[in-house]
Design a binder for these strands. Sequence first.
DNA 1: TCTTTACTGTAATGGACATTACATTCAAAT
DNA 2: ATTTGAATGTAATGTCCATTACAGTAAAGA
Lengths: 230, 230
Amino acid sequence: MPQERTKLWYLKNLDIFSHLSDEQYELIDKLAAMRPVKKGEVLYFQGATDKKFYMLKKGVVKITKLTPHGNEIILDIFSGVSLFGEIGVLNPQERDESAIVVEDGLICTMTKEDFERLVHMIPGLVIKMTKIIGLRRWKIENKLLDLLYRTVEQRLAKTFLNLLDDFAVPRDGGYLLKIKLTHKDFADLIASTRETVTATLNKLKNEGLLDFEGKYLVIKQLEKIRSLAE
Amino acid sequence: MPQERTKLWYLKNLDIFSHLSDEQYELIDKLAAMRPVKKGEVLYFQGATDKKFYMLKKGVVKITKLTPHGNEIILDIFSGVSLFGEIGVLNPQERDESAIVVEDGLICTMTKEDFERLVHMIPGLVIKMTKIIGLRRWKIENKLLDLLYRTVEQRLAKTFLNLLDDFAVPRDGGYLLKIKLTHKDFADLIASTRETVTATLNKLKNEGLLDFEGKYLVIKQLEKIRSLAE
DNA sequence: TCTTTACTGTAATGGACATTACATTCAAAT
DNA sequence: ATTTGAATGTAATGTCCATTACAGTAAAGA
């Protein structure tokens, strides 16, 4: 990982199921059905009313949102062990985001009922959940504010830094971003357009800050990227 | 109120302290210290670590956020009976928003400790809290997306509609917005600039959609405003 | 292997606003 | 009542970036 661990990094890895007894772990294991998922699979759609939450064990999932005007925005990308869709077990409303598999993986789901049974046995679980929700809110709020007030170049640079936390692979002095994202994906991540992303990426490439390696991006001058993101 | 009650309206008025016994009410009353607040008073600052939440009984409070680059944005405006700052009792992080009194009023505060004592006696309180937090997130997320993808005129129109829910006073066929906001305030609400707001307000005035009455705005053609906000 | 679809590259045009720069009016403080 | 600062009005200039329009390239399916 290229940068020092941030508060966010620690919090992201905060496990709501830590400090549990073996029996409790077994119970959770029994309740949460695991299944493999394939790229492109939609776990839930905006508007869905499924009452469950998801635990990603392996793979990559993106959380997207479609505005009434047809703009798609990627709110977050999860990889490795992480938890998402938690709103489903706590809120009565319908989902206002979709979750789509970006890279094959494994997920567990837990229904609202099972979660509530669990909460009875493990008090304090809800509080942990609220912390995760609070963190989510903080993250998304800050992301959207960045999108509002910063240029495309700055937004892209920041996106690289975020992705490096999860997908960095050292590559002669720099870091390869081991996640396949199209220019359209980047555009949806930073609320811009495909064309502008293409142009900006090539500009940064010409300036020597990054390079293309097949379908992957290589960050060659991390410090310069960092100062762009500021 | 000019428009039919929205889901948001209902949810906003959802009271976490409903369905309680008289004793429980008395307890809460004892725990929550009430005090008058004056316009301009800062209830908490971004970065503060106070562990309490706030209940507004009367008056108006704005929730603002300052970006690292000096942009101020108003995330929400609360009026009448409402609850805010709830993150303080659930999250360990420092506050990432400020709460500032816009119009004189009365507020109660409750510390994290008292809230936790209360939670012991009234299970289900945390769940109610998570619903409020979820609603907040939904609201802010949608607001920020609107700011990202819509024009200044559309954003202003939508802001009027939101404010009408809380501050509408009938005024010969239209509605007077009984809240004092400067053009700078409107700019901070819609992530624009003072000058652009002034120009747009005057454009809408010239088109007959609204008018100025002292320090207040009068929405003259609600339907047209609504179709602008779309 | 070929075909077709998805993705990338590039350039021109235009539009929505921020920015800058003042002027004017209004309200609050002394 | 006068001064001073805050809020508003208006216009010009410029910039970032969406939009539009193609062309070229890679990948996936038949």
